[in-house]
């Protein structure tokens, strides 16, 4: 299927629902972890040309902490959970109970990195298992990998499959926020799911959406 031309609204709706269910479960997991309320935004599903990818990811000069999984199985793809480095510091400070943790520094202690990796693992893991339950597809994530760097440099890793098949990527972007009193913005994180071009058909078929050849 030519996913470039065939991206009708009904397909985007299906992918949006995948993002919705996935991030919904992840938000619940995070809420339990922090014992706080977590809000979630409506997922944005976009077909993004590579040259515009920078604008979709946001602040190109910012530093983010990212947990990455390669998804294997019946619907392969890439999964990222990204959070601003300062936000990640606040989050892990709460969990570990060490106010000195700062992921913007060049060297961060192993304990903090391991905690961050585990949080990402729990969140992205709940996203993926919800995705798998919803579609009935078998998915096997690789162990999580952690990087603290520029968002584009990290995300470009997930674009390789697309880049061999075309010049656009399908990005399912969901934002979750920590609920705060007095309208103060709490920590927010982003899930990026990039299904491989070949697995889109699998996803649609599994959910009973007919794919027009």
């Amino acid at each position: 299927m030519s996913y470039l031309k065939g991206m009708e609204p009904k397909y985007l709706d299906v992918l949006q629902e995948v993002g919705n269910i996935g991030a919904g479960h992840a938000a619940t997991a995070m809420s339990k972890l922090l014992n706080k309320g977590i809000d979630m935004k409506v997922p944005a599903v976009k077909v993004v040309p590579f040259k515009e990818m920078n604008d979709s990811v946001g602040d190109e000069e910012g530093v983010v902490a990212a947990i990455y999984f390669r998804i294997q199985g019946e619907a392969s793809g890439h999964m990222f959970f990204m959070i601003q480095a300062e936000e990640a510091s606040k989050l892990i400070q709460q969990i570990v109970g060490d106010p000195m943790i700062d992921f913007t520094l060049p060297t961060v202690n192993e304990m903090a990195l391991s905690a961050l990796s585990e949080v990402g693992n729990i969140l992205a893991g709940s996203y993926l298992s919800a995705f798998s339950d919803f579609t009935g597809l078998h998915l096997q994530p690789t162990p999580p990998a952690l990087a603290i760097d520029m968002p584009m440099a990290i995300l470009s890793y997930g674009l390789m499959e697309f880049s061999e098949a075309g010049d656009v990527a399908i990005l399912i972007n969901t934002e979750i926020n920590e609920k705060m009193e007095n309208d103060v913005m709490g920590s927010k994180g982003h899930f990026f799911l990039l299904p491989d071009p070949d697995s889109l058909e699998q996803i649609f078929t599994s959910l009973g959406v007919k794919v027009n050849e």
Binding site: V57, M150, M152, S156, Y157, M160
Partner: peptide, 9 residues
């Protein structure tokens, strides 16, 4: 001239 976010690129 500039380009940002070079990872494996």
């Amino acid at each position: 001239i500039r380009t940002s976010g070079l990872g494996s690129c």
